[in-house]
Design a protein around this nucleic acid. Sequence first.
DNA 1: CATAGTATCAC
RNA 2: AUUGUGAUACUAUG
Length: 619
Amino acid sequence: MAQKFDSPKTESELRLIQDTMFNISAASYEYRRSPSFKGLLEIISSDSVILTAIHNIKSNKGSQTPGSDKETMKEDILQRDFNLVLGRVKEAFSNYRPRPLRRVSINKPGKTEKRQLGIPSVIDRIIQECVRLVLDPILEPQFFQHSYGFRPMRDAHMALARVTDVVHKTGHHWIIEGDISKFFERVNHSILLRKLWGMGIHDRRVLMIIKTMLQAGVIGETGTNDLGAPQGGIISPLLANVYLNSFDQWVTREWENKKTQKVYRNRKKTVALRESSNLKPAYLIRYADDWVLITNSKRNAEKWKYRICKFLKGNLKLELSEEKTKITNIKRKTIRFLGFEYKVTKGRSRTGYITRTKPDRDRIATKVKEIHRDIKHLRAASSMEFLIHDINLVNNKIRGLINYYQAATWINISLSIFKERLKYASYKSLLKFGGKWTRANQVNNLISIHESYTEHIAAIEYKGLKVGVTSIGFSKWNKAMLKKPSETPYTPEGRQIYSNRTAKKPLKARADDTLSEHLSMLIATGINGRLYTFEYYLNRAYAFNRDKGKCRICRKEVHRYDLHFHHINKMLPSDLVNKVGNLATMHMKCHSMIHSKLDYSEFGTKIWKSILSFREKLN
DNA sequence: CATAGTATCAC
RNA sequence: AUUGUGAUACUAUG
Ligand SMILES: Nc1ncnc2c1ncn2[C@H]1C[C@H](O)[C@@H](COP(=O)(O)OP(=O)(O)OP(=O)(O)O)O1
């Protein structure tokens, strides 16, 4: 019954393993059994997993900042010898000893209390990502359907859509808002490891690695850490979901899951059954440590709150935050969930009530204040170019804000309060640059949004182009969609649904696939004894991908035995010379034609022209 | 049709 | 200076 896999040799083999793991795990879950995966460490520490891990996290913003040692992604991984780096990561896997975390305190929005981050060193981030790559497909299918935080292809809007859906379908209006106090800091290591085992991670070496990861101490402090998962660790969010999964299962076992099993029974029978049982209705929607539970009466809400409190304390050693955990009748008062205010009002619908959502008042107010400051700051721009850059920055902020709160039914009304104030401030700031009131559909920036508005906004004109400060009023409600459970990154169908939903966006699946093939192919071509940096390896693959595997001189397919990557300009400084833009795929023969001085016009004008143009760029 | 950079948000 | 997971939007380049 236990599952073992060969280590992946290529990235598409890794993907296949991930898909297979997901399938096995999902199948066991259907039959209410837990899967059993062994020999995971071999997969986790294989070349292609390490490569994928580095590829995944190398462009994180935080990769530029070191952990407790002084190492950064760029200097100590990407610009080092390829095999040296691989060897170093593999070495770290045997007898794993994480470096201490760097402690940084950041502000929590709207609170005086600070958030304590624990930042792992770069090498430990790579290790964590390797583990995550393999554990995620195993754990993902076992998670609760209506847990939305930290999970792929799910977001806060879907959680909100689920709340609306349940309220509308059931007509229930008593809600518990729950928040777990200091969630990550309170995660108990041995309970967590038991849960991982219970979910099918049956490789003790991997569990040991996770254990030592969690125990990593903090720089400047003595000893190891016996409680909590670091805020800043790459696997911490995944582990957090593992930890609370039993909570989800426990709550939903008694009502939500029972109910779905009876869905095929005839209606009368189901209703009768529910009334006669002493079960209390409960619909849970969870986002990380933030959850709501929907039920039908105040009494039941209180009962559930009491029972949940006891469960969390007894089984998970967690506490509910007293001030943030409230019981509310959403016909009378709003609840706050995921940055939205949520309530129902009388209206035309099956239940006689319709939902009303608004952006959280306090949060939107502080954001608008920030934007107001930025707009006033526009007048300090030192040149027209900088001004345009700053306007774009402001526009980005406004669009970003609207983008998130679009899911609120009352977005337009809520944001319009601030509209005039911001517009007037923009006009005043732009005045000294010749700013004028301009119809939105006549400016040249953000055309896709502005073309449908005739309202006046403040805009400047530069070289015949009109650049306007967008309005916070250019927003309209966009109904959030419910999550399709079959949409997952680990099945072909799931990926298809995802790419359909995200419209004409590039097909992520296929892109990754081709990239992966080429990555591993290139690795197979060997190293020739020369010093190649890690970055060069990745970038060769990207360049090959961009050129679609064709020679840039003769446009024919290149096979691995006569593949060469031409440095378009060899004289560039060392950190630029290996960038994708400076690499061109070609045959070795074609390459030698660039560097010789002979006339090759006999091969046809197209080829000759390409050769000449590459020769020009050499110096 | 691809990659890379900025921004917003949730936790 | 500020880490992480996830989502979204815009812009730029070949
Ligand atoms: N910026 C962040 N970086 C890393 N992890 C984060 C970040 N924000 C939130 N998290 C994770 C760690 C938190 O324990 C968890 C829940 O967040 P949150 O509820 O805001 O705070 P908290 O549970 O740590 O304290 P409390 O709820 O008592 O204020 O999500």
